[in-house]
């Protein structure tokens, strides 16, 4: 019903290209996160969907309707802004009711929807207050309630949690997820925080320099990144990238060998920190430089043949800086990457 289709959208600011021929489908009721570092074009894309920015070329469809040339108010969507954008001269009630009033809803309808939205976000006690009297977290709730009150076909969120402190962010995150799950609204959510994207989204689109590097479910993205950039951006700590020389179809480093299919004489092994076992002998030689106890794991930072690597081991492991360990990555979980173009081998990227 209200999926979004983004068809070959391109955006240029003067000579600079913010978005390059971007095509993307968001299904009805899906929660899609646009994830990427600042300046990757994710906010620009969101603003183009909203109609706040005009694309240089390409078209946008919402629910099958071409909205490319429509002003924001006719696109049938709601948006939550990074700095909340709650109207300071209206009470919380009037803020939440704003979209409904603009639609010309009856007083009874306004009342009903405001109460429903306020109930979802737990802001009933503040309805008669002015936003200046609210904390950041409460304002954020008002902004979300205002968006949900109009029962939009599409909800756009632009880094809605980035102005909250860490604890509040975690709380709002799980709350957002449950609220949006129950409403079944198609949502596009912009963030630079990969844990936020992983936790909230049905699918994540990782953006980099104006192109989408990969779109997939969070777990698939984490386990099988299509490019070196995705592997390095998603997950904490980031994926390890270790260059290995290739001879006769065999990647070899230290005592570690693995058959690979590449025509080049080096290959990059992308290995997650937790996909590595410490073994008695053989494997990759690892010189420990730093030990960080993180509670659930012990994170070791060191070097494999001069290349930086991080390994997560059991928290009770006895390791000290200066030690040399032997590492055995689980072969099935290694992502082999062509060092020339940064793309994973054996995957459509």
């Amino acid at each position: 019903m209200s999926g979004i289709r983004i068809d070959a959208i391109e955006k240029r600011f003067g000579a600079a290209r913010a978005l390059e021929q971007l095509t993307l489908d968001v299904e009805d009721g899906e929660f899609l996160a646009l994830l990427g570092p600042s300046g990757c074009g994710k906010t620009t894309l969101l603003r183009i969907i909203a109609g706040l920015e005009t694309q240089t070329s390409g078209r946008i469809f919402i629910g099958g309707r071409d909205v490319s040339a429509l002003p924001p108010r006719e696109r049938g969507l709601a948006m939550v802004f990074q700095n909340y954008a709650v109207f300071p001269h209206m009470t919380v009630y009037e803020n939440v009711a704003f979209g409904l009033r603009m639609k010309g809803a009856t007083a009874a309808e306004v009342n009903k929807q405001v109460e429903r939205a306020a109930g979802l976000l737990h802001i009933e006690p503040y309805l008669e207050r002015y936003p200046a009297k609210l904390s950041g977290g409460q304002r954020q709730r008002v902004a979300v309630a205002r968006a949900l009150a109009v029962q939009p076909a599409v909800l756009l969120m632009d880094e809605p949690l980035s102005n909250l402190d860490a604890l509040l962010r975690l709380e709002m995150r799980s709350e957002l997820k449950s609220v949006l799950n129950s409403s079944g609204t198609t949502t596009v959510y912009v963030t630079h925080d990969q844990t936020e994207a992983m936790g909230l989204a049905d699918r994540i689109a990782v953006m980099h320099q104006g192109v989408i590097e990969q779109i997939d479910r969070p777990q698939a993205l984490y386990e099988r990144p299509a490019t070196r950039f995705v592997g390095g951006f998603v997950g904490s700590p980031p994926m390890n990238f270790i260059d290995m020389p290739v001879k006769a179809g065999l990647a070899r480093l230290g005592d570690f060998t693995n058959p690979v299919s590449t025509g080049r004489d080096t290959i990059t092994a992308g290995i997650r920190a937790e996909d590595i076992a410490v073994v008695e002998r053989g494997g990759l030689p690892f010189d420990v430089m730093v030990c960080e106890p993180l509670g659930a794991t012990l994170l070791l930072t060191g070097r494999v043949a001069g290349q930086l690597a991080r390994v997560a081991v059991r928290p009770d492991a006895v390791v000290a800086p200066g030690d040399r360990l032997n590492l055995e990555p689980s072969p099935g979980r290694i992502v082999w990457i062509d060092p020339a173009n940064g793309k994973a081998i054996g995957q459509a990227a």
Binding site: L52, R73, A78, M79, A85, H89, M102
Partner: peptide, 25 residues
């Protein structure tokens, strides 16, 4: 903040309405 106006556009205002209801007050 510009976002206040943009929010007004999103929630159904024309440019003039957004100015009258949000910016002017």
């Amino acid at each position: 903040p510009r976002e206040l106006e943009e929010a007004a556009w999103i929630f159904g205002c024309t440019g003039l309405q957004a100015f009258r209801k949000i910016v002017l007050p």
